[in-house]
Nucleic acid binder design. Structure first.
Lengths: 204, 204
DNA sequence: GAGTTATTTGAACAATGTTCAAGTTGGTAT
DNA sequence: ATACCAACTTGAACATTGTTCAAATAACTC
């Protein structure tokens, strides 16, 4: 049903409003954090009624999930834009890019990783797939670096490396807890990647 | 004021109720997650009024923070109980213990790391100190393993190692996202520690 | 332009955090 | 024992915020 209704006046308005609402929600999350996001604030800023937000997204989680989906998409796009030259440089750049993105969009990433659905509704599959996709981006350079190892092992290693980098960055940026200065964090992440690659026998 | 009022009848009741409420809140978080925690559920289960919860904890965040504080305490206690023998074994045991705790108390750890305060109230300092304390537990064995390195560097390394392990575990246990089987996760964490230590030039 | 369908609206409702005046209880002095 | 005071407890009322839906409006069709 949702296929080619996009050039009617209705379709146009629907699309525009949907984008408007998502953009506003994203801005609000960015500036004040997920916890301060309110339906009424969104409706006010989008200059429409509360009901319209619900028509478009079903419920409040729907808005958040849409923002989160776009966050993974943006992150994945940034990571995919990393040049695929020397695999070691590539791994460093992937980690540095993740850090960059996390520093620029701290509240959006938190929303992605911290938001829990109401009750026990399942986590939306498309977001899941996109996150896995992002995870897998370290796989390819690692495969090139370890052509002799079982690809399954390498898949595990790459996910582990990604998770480790994620941990270092997300705790490092957690201003309430540790607040590593960004520049220092950049160095630490680079150092970590080197150390880990050394441990894998890839670097001298 | 709060010093030696503990043997009056009032003091006793206060203490008992406080513990009761915290226990109930913890059980509810454990079983249904932070998001489903409601003041009224707590009051019902503790067989007291809503107001009493507020008298005791100021606001709802107060209850959550108290649970979170006890979670760090429990975690730190478990980590401190790790035998201090061979430093490499010690590091492995610390990581394994963290994994064990995280697996047993997934929702409690999430509450600790994911809960955001209303508006911009500051994160309570005592919890912060306790988390730092837990972080530092990897420091001592690493110092023994790298007696020649600048202790400041080692401090950074130990925090990084802890953060990395945290990332691997928390994403690994995130059933909605990846769901690494627990046994497999145990092996991965052990492998990670080995790889990292190899990278540091400590293991062959 | 009349009729049909889809969309939008916002008042009303539901769920949940918060307050506080009134009632109750524990302590204390006589 | 009684009276009094201070502290604690209560729960109805309020505030905030997510959710619904009947009525109004707008877009589309013929």
């Amino acid at each position: 049903m949702n296929i080619v209704q996009e050039n009617s006046l209705r379709g146009q308005k629907k699309i525009r409003r949907r984008a408007l609402i998502v953009g506003i929600a994203r801005d609000l999350i960015t500036s004040k954090g997920l916890r301060s996001l309110k339906v009424r604030d969104i409706a006010d800023a989008a200059d429409c009624s509360i009901g319209s937000v619900y028509n478009e997204f079903g419920d409040f989680d729907g808005v958040i999930l849409t923002v989160n989906k776009e966050t993974v998409q943006a992150l994945t796009a940034r990571l995919k834009a990393v040049p695929k030259d020397d695999p070691i440089r590539q791994l460093h750049r992937l980690a540095a890019t993740y850090l960059e993105f996390a520093a620029e969009h701290a509240n959006l990433l938190r929303s992605l990783f911290e938001h829990r659905m109401e009750e026990d509704r399942p986590f939306p599959e498309d977001i899941l797939i996109m996150v896995m996709d992002a995870f897998r981006l370290m796989h390819e350079p690692l495969v090139r670096l370890m052509p002799d190892r079982d690809p399954n092992d390498v898949a595990l290693l790459s996910r582990m490396m990604f998770s480790a980098v994620h941990g270092i960055i997300s705790l490092g940026l957690e201003e309430r807890m540790v607040a590593v200065p960004p520049e220092s964090l950049r160095q630490q992440v680079a150092q970590f990647v080197d150390t880990y690659l050394k441990g894998l026998g890839i670097l001298k």
